[in-house]
Amino acid sequence: MNKDIILCGVGGQGTVLASKLIASAAMKDGQTVHSAETIGMAQRGGSVISHVRIGDKAYSPLIPNGSADIILAFEPAEAVRNLAYLKAGGLVIVNSVPVKPVTESLNDTGYDGKEMIEYLKTKCRNVIVVNAEELCREFGSSKFFNVAILGVAVGSGKTGLSPENVLSEIENRVPEKFRELNIRAFLKGEQIGANYDA
């Protein structure tokens, strides 16, 4: 099985943890995994992207355009920015809540993410839209969205990952203080993904 997954968002949204969880869960299944991360200056509020490649037919650390099976977008405009990676018939899971850059507050262009979601829907057949604020309200912080959106992906059945493996990796990697909330966020996301019928 070869799966190429793009995770994208804005620095500070937790894409790196989500990509590590995918990688380690796939390795538990005996898969070869490669990934690449954005580290450095861009982490300070810039656009960030993780490429996760599952399977032994991946030579490059970066996913070629038109090859990603799934895009997990933590922010609507970032989904559109990286849409060229998606393969025909691929799945986009996107958060509808925008992150407005400081430049946007200074010169308001009215960016609210809605136009991005509409565009995604005109370009792709398979789009799951989730609202991070609503989804995470019961957990008290949108910081749990990274694990929740991972739950949506796993629940959709398109990642090839078993929920058990991801859950056990959450237990391994997340500090005890936040473990319970992360598990609940994952399970809630998984439910949403399972209800989606592509």
Binding site: R44, G45, G46, T103, Y119, K123
Partner: peptide, 18 residues
């Protein structure tokens, strides 16, 4: 290639002080 030339204008995200 997928035609994405009609993409809406994307917000720019220069890195900023936290």
């Amino acid at each position: 290639k997928a035609n994405l030339s009609d993409m809406p204008a994307l917000p720019v995200r220069p890195p900023v002080l936290c």
